[in-house]
């Protein structure tokens, strides 16, 4: 490329960048939407980039240079002098002084670690208890997210319902999924079920994702995160994928007003496994 024509190209790029930048301002003023805004500002930068690169390649002095590299190691004497400087005044330090300083350092280090305990919010229960318990108790009514209490008739076969303990629609560890099957198909004792209605923890025992997919003909629950499958009829045993435990079951009963209630807490640890005695 001749020098003149290179200059023309570079200035054309810079002009283009300026034009796109002005266009961006106009687009911003008239609120032209993200596509136009991003497109124009990006174009301005791209034009500038092309101009700069052309400039560097065609117009600026180039050439190969050789820079000498000195060895990293300085002469022995320089090194010795530095080490001596470091040791200045250290020869006479009593051993007791050094040891107590070390002790002080360790103690101080340990002391500043302790306040990390405050990271656990005062409102939280200690981990072992919080992880083992959910708000479900005997007699707590089932409630949908919209706040409706649930009767047995509200759970026809083929549907699935996400429920929470009454009044606690944001209690994540209590989330349960309620389905109804033909009681004769159940491959486990019917206690804790009401007319074929079963409730399981909705949190996958693998990584804790809500098991949101219910296949009504195969009666399987499918986790969208890591593709674990749980078989409802056998008590939500994990049948495929990376989950190793069944979904804990929430025992159900019916209260005096005909509403479905829990008959206790889940029958196992809810959510992802943590290190605990088996």
């Amino acid at each position: 490329m001749k020098r003149r024509s290179a200059e023309a190209w570079v200035s054309a790029c810079f002009l283009g960048a300026a034009a796109a930048a002005v266009g961006f301002v106009v687009a911003y003023v008239v609120d032209a939407g993200p596509q136009v805004l991003g497109g124009l500002l990006g174009t301005a930068c791209a034009a500038l980039a092309v101009g700069l690169v052309l400039w560097a390649a065609q117009l600026l002095p180039s050439g190969t240079y050789v820079e000498e590299r000195r060895p990293m190691q300085p002469p022995e004497a320089t090194q010795t002098a530095f080490v001596e400087t470091l040791h200045r005044g250290s020869s006479g330090t009593p051993r007791l002084l050094r040891r107590t300083l070390l002790l002080a350092g360790l103690a101080l280090g340990a002391a500043v670690v302790v306040p990390l305990r405050s990271l656990l919010l005062p409102t939280s229960a200690p981990p072992a208890r919080a992880l083992r318990q959910t708000p479900w108790r005997r007699g707590v009514r089932l409630m949908t997210r919209e706040g409706d209490l649930v009767r047995a008739d509200d759970v026809p076969q083929g549907t699935d319902l996400t429920v929470f303990p009454e009044g606690m629609p944001r209690a994540d560890d209590a989330t349960a999924i309620v389905v109804r099957v033909d009681p004769r198909e159940l491959q486990q004792p019917a206690e804790g079920t009401v007319a074929g209605i079963l409730a399981f923890s909705k949190l996958c025992t693998h990584a804790g994702c809500p098991v949101g997919l219910y296949e009504q003909t195969t009666r399987q629950l499918f986790c969208p995160c890591h593709q674990s499958v749980f078989d409802v009829l056998s008590g939500a045993e994990a049948v495929a994928g990376p989950a190793a435990r069944a979904l804990p079951r929430l025992p159900l009963a019916v209260d005096g007003d005909g509403y479905l209630v829990a008959d206790g807490d889940f029958d196992g640890q809810v959510g992802p496994t943590f290190w605990r005695p088996e």
């Binding site: 509200d154 759970v155 026809p156 083929g158 549907t159 219910y214 296949e215 009504q216």
Partner: peptide
Amino acid sequence: IGPGQMPQWPEEV
């Protein structure tokens, strides 16, 4: 109707 594997949501749900 809940076609295929899809759950159904009748009027009461």
